[in-house]
């Protein structure tokens, strides 16, 4: 909607003059651009309002329509609200996630069973050779 140049902000404007389309860039003030881009505080999502009131807010991904930045104006002050950190939380295991000691016990049990199986297999093959 706007063009930013070192000379300032401009808004594209087209007019039809004698059958020709004339494209102009009309200068606009920065405050015009700010007002056009900024969302009114009352119309911002609830978590964005909380972030402005308290400085930060943490929300579940499911509660966010789109992970993006917000440019918000509240009582003449402009705020930028942007995601700064994502925390991955393992969900779905819950109580089924075995405690560390249980995992160690299962691992040890596997070793013992494996060694016992090797010894037993050796005995069986020895017996087979003797009977042959």
């Amino acid at each position: 909607d706007f063009v930013r140049t070192p000379e300032g902000y401009f808004r594209p404007n087209t007019t039809l003059e004698d059958g020709a389309l004339v494209l102009r860039l009309d200068p606009v003030s920065e405050s015009t651009v700010r007002d056009a881009l900024a969302t009114e505080f009352d119309r911002a999502p609830e978590y964005v309002q909380t972030a402005i009131r308290e400085g930060t807010v943490t929300v579940n991904e499911d509660d966010v329509y789109e992970e993006s930045r917000f440019y918000v104006v509240r009582d003449g002050t402009y705020y930028l609200v942007e995601p700064t950190a994502n925390e991955y939380v393992v969900t779905g295991w819950g109580w089924r996630d075995p405690p560390h000691i249980a995992v160690e016990a299962i691992r040890l049990g596997g070793w013992i069973a494996g060694v016992a199986l090797l010894v037993r297999a050796g005995e069986w093959s020895e017996r087979g050779r003797r009977e042959a």
Partner: peptide, 14 residues
């Protein structure tokens, strides 16, 4: 996944 948003006062147009 949890997302943290931070609000800062913006001096210019972002």
């Amino acid at each position: 996944e949890r997302i943290t948003y931070e609000a800062t006062e913006a001096d210019g147009v972002p």
